[in-house]
Every structure is written in structure tokens, then in C-alpha cells.
Write a protein that binds this DNA or RNA. Sequence first.
RNA 1: GGGGAAUUACCAGAGUGGCCAAAUGGGGCAGACUGUAAAUCUGCUGACUUACGUCUUCGGUGGUUCGAAUCCAUCAUUCCCCA
Length: 426
Amino acid sequence: HHPIISSSHHPIISSSRNKFIIFDIPRSPYFSHTYFYRTYYLYICHKIFSVNFTISHTDKASKARVGTITTDHGEIQTPIFMPVGTIGSVKAVHQHELADDIKAQIILGNTYHLYLRPGMQILQEAGGLHKFINWDKPILTDSGGYQVFSLAHNRKINENGVIFRSHIDGSKHVFSPENVVEIQRIIGADIMMAFDECTPYPCEYAYAKKSMELTHRWLDRGIKRFEETHPAYSHSQAYFPIVQGSVYKDLRIESAEKIASVSKFACAIGGLSVGEPVELMYEMLETVNNILPLDKPRYLMGVGTPINILESIALGVDMMDCVMPTRNGRNGMLFTKHGTINIKNKKWENDFSPLDSEGTSYVDSQYSKAYLHHLVKAEEILALQIASIHNLAFYLWLVSEARKHIKHDDFTVWKNTMVAQMSKRI
RNA sequence: GGGGAAUUACCAGAGUGGCCAAAUGGGGCAGACUGUAAAUCUGCUGACUUACGUCUUCGGUGGUUCGAAUCCAUCAUUCCCCA
């Protein structure tokens, strides 16, 4: 994150003659040609900046491990939960709350949503998403593959990519493995996701196979474009391929082998937690993680409940994201270490005890259940904020505890206790 | 003092002879939510019953009618206009 170089024009959308200004490398007569500067810049980037992963501890009784991902925007301690900030904001949460109270280490953005609004022009003028939203920690952007799934009625898939209709104004757009790389270059995410098709559940075997093979072909094209393009800003970017294969073991194995063979930085696992029984998800995770390289982070996309998170960590997952703490929080659900609370329920009306007497966030001790119940009933905006901060702080606390217990070699015992008590409804 | 309008479930408010236990909002009570088209969505909301169903309701009382929230009489209450 060193301001060595700034580019006034992005290499992808401007001409090949990019102008780079080098601030703290002494100008020398030898370094006069733009092309030379550009080469030198890329050399420095690859030498000094990259996304790395080191494992510091592996659990003995499970596949859980503790590690550190290094990016130009700082380190990420794994296992980690990543709050979702689709459109450039973790809904109802300020950036300073994310950093200071919730202790988020990395957040997500979404290529599809940011591409539609505010759009590439604004993101580029802003100098990338980090600057635009004032967040100097790492950002991961999803590729829009999930929107291929969730906006299924508004799109057409073909070999080249996906033709979308904007959910905002109905305008027509094309996403391809290539332009999704370019868009994520402009967004400037530290971690870019490959463009995939997230298959629904249930999904016919034949379709799952066809879709997985398409995702693999798209992956090769995406990697090619990733390698022939460069970061638009002064930090490096990683590109994560995604395992697919629905709930079919042989497809998952095939996909995991493919992803393992091409992954440089990490491997993502997609197409799960889309409605399948949770046992199937764990089974697929186990299958996939037996194949994915041990020395690279595994990112399980879109998961999940606090219990899902602990079980996935036990199966060797290092990164997770989910809208659940924020969305369910906005809808009145609070996660605690003793189970879930529906704060809308009448029984909280006159419960003046702290929101979560064992919570780690300031909202837990400073506000009562009765007060949040009232705010929810009254549809006050503060209700959304308090619930979101509480839930995210809880999720981040949960993974930090997981790291602690993995290091202390008592993860499995702790996990089983937590799973038992978190499955209750309070 | 004279004239006019109204009263329907927790609230607002449709319904003016049978398809009405009664539209629709709101409120209330629950539930759902997993790479965010989500501060969203779904169900229930007279009583008893798991349900089928049965019973009691549309200001009060009394009528007309096979049948009344709906028509008639009367009483009560509220609002508006004129003096």
C-alpha cells in the first residue's frame, strides 16, 4: 500500500501507452521510457507485493489450521469471517465500527452490483473501491457468479459468458470471464474471484457436470486475462478459482483437482449452502479439502450459520463470508454463544438485561434487549445498526476464539461444546 | 331552535337482502432468511377445534323476511351546516 506509483489511466480501459508517475524511485536518465517504468513497476509489485499465506498451527484432532494471509492492505488472520458489503457498504455499519468494534479484517464487495452502480467510470475516478469507501484493509470482490444463480430469471448463459438484464433499469450487459477480471481490476479488490456459475440445489447431475466444465473453461480464460493484465492501483491483486460440482462427489473431486492444478494464491469452494442438507455440504467440503493443496487458503463461499462456520473450520476451511449476520440482524435475529434470539418476540418487551451479557461489542453491554426490541418495533434505523454490529462482532469473536483454540490444541472439544449450545433458540 | 350525515373486528375503512366471520391498510402475534434485487418476505389475527366444522358478531332494542351488517320503527351517541 505504498504510494510508489499512481496511474492516471487504467491500463485496461485506456490505451496501451499508460502513464505512470514514480514518486520515490530516483529518476535516472536510463529510466526515461514509459515502457521501462511500467516494467520496473511490475517488477517491484511482484517482488514486494503479493498475496501470501503462511500456516502457523495445525489442529491435531481436526483439519483446522491457523494462518496468516498477507496482502498489500494488511494481514488477515485465518480462519476468518468476512462481512459482506455488496454495494460498497456493509449494510447499516460504519467503516470505523467495522474496523474498531467488529474488528473485521477484510470485507466483500460484489462485481455485478458495483459494475451496475456506481459503475466503472466512478470507481476509476475514485481511485478504486478502497478509496471510494474509505476502507484501507483488504477487500475481496465476488465475481457476479452468485448473481448468475440468484438473478436466474434475468440472464442467459452461453459459452462466452452471461447476458444479464440489470435489475435496476433492465439494461442489457454481458459478463465474461475476461471482462469480470478487468472490472475487478478497476474495482481494485485485493482478492478477485473467478467468474463461475453457482448451480442451484437441487441440480441434475448432467447439468451440474456441464456447468462445472463450463466454469473450468471460464477459469482458464479468466486466468489468462488475469495474467495479461495488471493492477490498476498501487497494490497487488490475487485471483481465486472456484470449485463447483453441486452435491456430486465425483464432480467435486474432478473440480477440486482442476482448481488445485491451477491455483496460485488460494482455492475457493462455491455452489454450497444453496439449500442442500447441511450434511451434504460437509460431505462435499471433506471431499474437496482432501484434494485442495494444504499450503493455500480455502475459501468457502457464502457460509453460513455460526455452527456451519465452526464445522467448516474443522474441515479445513480458512475463509468464509455470509450475509447472514447482517441480513438476519436487520430482520431481528441475534446470534449469541447460547443460541439465537428473535428480538422481535414479545418476551423481550420488558427484559432490561444487556443485549448480550457475554458479548464483546460495546452495543452488547450498553443497550438492553428491551431497548432493541422497542427500536425494532418502532422501525428505528438504530435497530438495524445495533443488530448488525452485534452479529458481526459475534461472528468475528467466534473465529478469533476458533484460532485461539486451534493454537491451544483444544479446538474440537471447544467446537463441539459451542455447536451444542449455539443450536438453541433463546 | 332548524336541517343534514354517521355508528362495521384492536384502529382506520369497504361492504347497502343469500356468494359475509365480513375486502383492504395499519397494528398485534409468530416464522423464514447462508458468495445481499432483502430495514425484506410468508403465515395467523371473533370463540371452541389438529382439521372438517360448530357457535356468537356489524351502536341498543323491537320488527319485516325462508334469510338482515344491509330494509323498517324507535332509542342512544358522534360529527357537520344554518340560526
